[in-house]
């Protein structure tokens, strides 16, 4: 399986996302922001960082990169896409996911090892977890406060589209402690904490992040075997 990792100018965790994909057993394929060709990848990760410096609104410029045109089309067609941190911001700017990520309420960048509770496990990126499972993943962001209007939040919860919530402390003030969400089809997932930094015992606080990358491989294998992609893709 081939997992594409996009590099925008200012992407920082692209190498780490590629490493996580390799550790999970996939082939990591580097995708360049200016190249609309997805090189036949089976899934895409939009990594963390400060794309184009994020001097405007986080992800606002990256959303218009040539590679994003292809990714937006492919995601609507069912391609599994995971946006981590800045990648989550890009997915919201691209309207593949609802809501927005705003300045942390305490106005500081914050890096800590964060407990999350996994909720939706019927997505391409979370099917390897069990509902209610608590996982430890580093969070590090300055603009990670998830906001949406009440109707959208209600809809996300009613449809089971919250994939994880912060527990034992909310690091950035996100509404309803939301750490990550998915689209209706379950193939597009955005998460603020960094699963790619919890894939090795030597460098991470846990191995819990690996579950996101093994989940997508399982979903892809299932789809290849004639089944449906987890998350109800048609």
């Amino acid at each position: 399986m081939r997992i594409g990792v996009v590099t925008f100018p200012g992407s920082l965790d692209d190498g780490d996302a590629a490493r996580a994909a390799r550790i999970a057993g996939a082939e990591a394929v580097r995708l360049w922001h200016g190249d609309p060709d997805l090189h036949g990848v089976d899934a895409v990760v939009l990594p963390g960082g400060f794309s184009y410096g994020d001097y405007l609104r986080c992800g606002a410029i990256a959303r218009f990169a040539p590679v994003m045109e292809s990714i937006i089309d492919a995601a609507r067609g069912g391609l599994p896409v995971l946006g981590i941190c800045n990648g989550f911001q890009v997915l919201c700017e691209a309207h593949l996911l609802p809501g927005a990520l705003t300045r942390n309420q305490h106005l500081h960048f914050r890096n800590r090892d964060q407990w999350l509770k996994v909720e939706a496990t019927n997505t391409a990126w979370t099917n390897g977890f069990t509902p209610g499972q608590e996982i430890l993943i580093p969070v590090k962001n300055g603009e990670g406060c998830f906001v949406a209007d009440p109707a959208t939040l209600d809809k996300l919860e009613a449809e089971g589209r919250v994939i994880a919530r912060y527990v034992r402390g909310n690091p950035n003030g996100s509404q309803r402690d939301i750490a990550g969400i998915t689209n209706e089809a379950g193939n597009v997932v955005g998460i603020m904490p960094h699963p790619e930094h919890a894939v090795e015992a030597l460098t991470g606080p846990s191995l819990d992040g690996l579950g996101f990358f093994t989940s997508v491989l399982r979903a892809l294998a299932g789809a290849a075997a004639g089944g449906q992609l987890a998350g109800g893709q048609q």
């Binding site: 190498g15 780490d16 500081h108 890096n111 590090k140 460098t203």
Partner: peptide, 8 residues
Amino acid sequence: QYDRYVLG
């Protein structure tokens, strides 16, 4: 306030 994880 510092990222200690980046670069892995």
